[in-house]
Amino acid sequence: MKKNRFVSAFSEQIESYLHFKCSIGYTEKSYLHRMRQFDAFCAENFPDSKIVTEEILEKWSCLRNRESENNRLQRLIALKGLLNYLKAAGMQTYTMPQGLIRKQQSFRPYLYSEEELRMFFRGADTLPDHPSSKYRHLLVPVMFRMHFCCGLRPQETLHLRCCDVNLREGILYIAESKGHKDRRIAMSEDLRNLCSEYERVISRILPNRMYFFQRSQENRPLSAETQGDWFSACLKNSGCTFSGRKRPRVYDFRHNFATYVIKKWRREGKNISDMLPYLREYMGHSSLEATAYYIHLMPEHFAEDVATEWEGIPEVPSYED
């Protein structure tokens, strides 16, 4: 069990909880971010508390400045898991009241226009280095293009190791992703060339790095907060006033990838229902329904047209898994 990662009075309980989750087959990275948030919150606001009290829960459950309701609910869900574990282990703790966690609000991903994409990546390409991230200008153009061109989840890019990137064949190995599934996906030739040039430059600066996108000599992945900060910096540097009520998120590149692929197949005259199983495998979805969701993000007339082909969607042959 790793030590000294947490600083609050709950450090031992959190470590024990993470160890338990790993022992029953879950990956630590699925829980580590929220546990670090809760640990820092307790260290700052309740440094002497050794029991999760009603006061701690009330303060933790408050909606923060510029925080979405869904993010607040995710924080509560993470804490509920810890509290349930502590209670099952016979430790004294406050029980989260029923009804505190409500159903998450549905959301509609941000779909970029072609001009918005051009402006975003122009902003990424011209992003200067930063005192605390002096290699940021090298990582950002490649990392966010990989998101968009391969439809990766944010955490998949952050935890991509150098050994997972086969630049000779243009293959990415995505290990232990959502649902604890591994998969191999192909890059386009343009992306492979971009990654090869990035590797040529960054390997001279950080020759022994572990992660493909790494900001220093210290072998640890970028944090989700850092990735989000860099994404926001690109948005600002792009000068684009993005349409819609909500600003884009890193995760929206994944949604845009899926819709672009479906549109491309449609232009090529391919049967969408025949092709969706391949998109499911590429994106690592657990079900075909999760992939078909992207049809409903299309313009209404397009979605209705595609939906006529929905019946009888086949499974991908086992030899192509």
Rank of each mutant, 00 (worst) to 15 (best):
I24E: 09
E189G: 02
K246L: 09
T95L: 14
C42T: 13
E281C: 11
L76T: 11
F6N: 08
L167E: 09
K80F: 01
L139I: 15
R64W: 05
N193D: 15
C150N: 08
G123Q: 06
H33K: 02
D48S: 10
Q155L: 07
A292S: 09
Y135V: 15
K246H: 13
E315F: 15
H19Q: 13
H296Y: 13
T53K: 00
E116Q: 11
F38D: 05
S238H: 11
R72H: 03
R5I: 15
E55F: 05
Y294G: 04
D164A: 05
L297H: 11
T259Y: 05
E309I: 10
V7A: 09
R280I: 10
D305F: 14
T259K: 01
Q105N: 14
M146Q: 02
Y260P: 00
N193Q: 13
T95W: 01
Q37E: 08
K246Y: 13
P109K: 05
S132A: 06
H301M: 07
S49F: 07
A89L: 03
I295K: 02
F253R: 00
N256L: 11
M35N: 10
I262F: 13
V261R: 11
L279M: 10
S106L: 09
D229P: 00
A124P: 03
G25T: 06
A9R: 13
F257P: 04
R145K: 03
P128R: 00
Y211I: 04
I77V: 15
Y94L: 05
M146G: 03
S61Q: 04
M283S: 04
M283Q: 09
R267D: 14
M275T: 08
K103D: 04
A224S: 13
M210I: 15
F41R: 00
G239K: 01
W60G: 11
R204D: 14
R249T: 15
P248M: 06
